[in-house]
Structures are given as C-alpha cells and as structure tokens.
C-alpha cells in the first residue's frame, strides 16, 4: 500500500463520517460545520487527483461562499443555537427506501462501467493546464451552450435576489 492510498483511505473515511454526522447531528449548526468538513475532504481528494484547479475552486466556492451562506441561514432560523429537535419525521422511511434503491442502482451500474475497471494514467501537464478548461467552455464544439445557459440562470437568480430585496419607494413613505 502506497502513501497515496493510505491518504486516500483516511480522507474518504473523514468525508463519509462527516457526511453521516452532518445528517444526524442534533444541533443544526453542527450539521453545517460537519458539512464544511466533508466539503474540505472532497477538496483534498481533488488535490490528490492532481486536479489543483478543482481543489482550489472547491474550497473557494463551497467553503468560502456556500458554507458561510448555509451557516448564516442556519443562524437566522428559529432557535438555531439551542435547537434539539427530533431528527426523524414521517418521510424518513420512504426516503430511506428511495435512497437505498438509487444507491444500489449506482453501485450496480458503476461496477460494469468500463473506465472504472482499470487504473487511469496520471494527467499530463498539457491536460492540467487551466487554459484547456477555458477553451472547452468557450469553443463552439465544446460546452458553450451549457456554459451560457448556466450564466443566464445565474443572472436570473441575481435579478430575482435584487427584486426580493428591493425596498419599494412607496412603501417607505
């Protein structure tokens, strides 16, 4: 077993444990913090795959922005700091069944997926260049359409946020 594999096992264990804890923790804010740990673990996995761009973006977007947003939202809820409510509700059983079916399906289909059968070779310096990613996003035969659609979606979200937060003049008076 190489050092890389040991590192991978430790990271995966941390990610799995913190994901489970983020679902089962009693206090909401603890769930949010466990979730942050899981996201950081995923960033470490990216770094071990030599995808440094994705590792950094994972930390930047998820830990730097989304996790903090979630924590803010959690603290705005009712009794966020001392909430010790029930972790289960009526939908738990149904959700469990659906999730297990999806998980089993994923395992079965991934097991027969060819690229997972053998080890992939390390990425070359050419493939690690961030410029390649940028070109793929803007080239006509690349992912231009999804990229632009995402931009429009984000723009719509921005405008929506401004509309919701906008203080109307006549209401003020």
């Amino acid at each position: 077993m190489t050092g890389m594999q040991i590192l991978f096992l430790i990271t995966s264990a941390v990610v799995l444990f913190s994901s489970i804890m983020s679902v089962t923790a009693k206090r909401m804010i603890h769930s949010a913090l466990w979730f942050v740990l899981a996201l950081l673990g995923v960033a470490v996995v990216f770094a071990m795959l030599e995808a440094s761009f994705f590792a950094v973006v994972q930390v930047l977007v998820y830990v730097g922005a989304i996790a903090i947003l979630i924590i803010f939202a959690t603290m705005l809820t009712r009794r966020a700091l001392e909430d010790k409510g029930d972790q289960f509700n009526r939908a738990t059983l149904v959700t469990l069944v659906i999730v297990s079916i999806i998980f089993a399906g994923l395992v079965v289909s991934l097991k027969s997926w060819a690229p997972l059968q053998n080890l992939t070779s390390p990425l070359s310096a050419e493939q690690l260049n961030v410029g390649v990613l940028g070109l793929a996003l803007t080239a006509p035969d690349g992912f231009t359409l999804p990229f632009e659609v995402t931009s429009i979606l984000l723009l719509a979200a921005l405008i929506g946020a401004i509309y919701v937060a906008y203080e109307r003049k006549e209401k003020k008076k």
């Binding site: 942050v36 950094v56 973006v57 930390v59 930047l60 830990v63 730097g64 922005a65 996790a67 903090i68």
Partner: peptide, 10 residues
C-alpha cells in the same frame, strides 16, 4: 490565495 481567505472567514 483567495480560497485560503475563505478559510480565514470560517
């Protein structure tokens, strides 16, 4: 550098 700034906020 920017991402690490996010950790500082955390």
């Amino acid at each position: 550098i920017i991402a690490i700034g996010g950790l500082g906020e955390m």
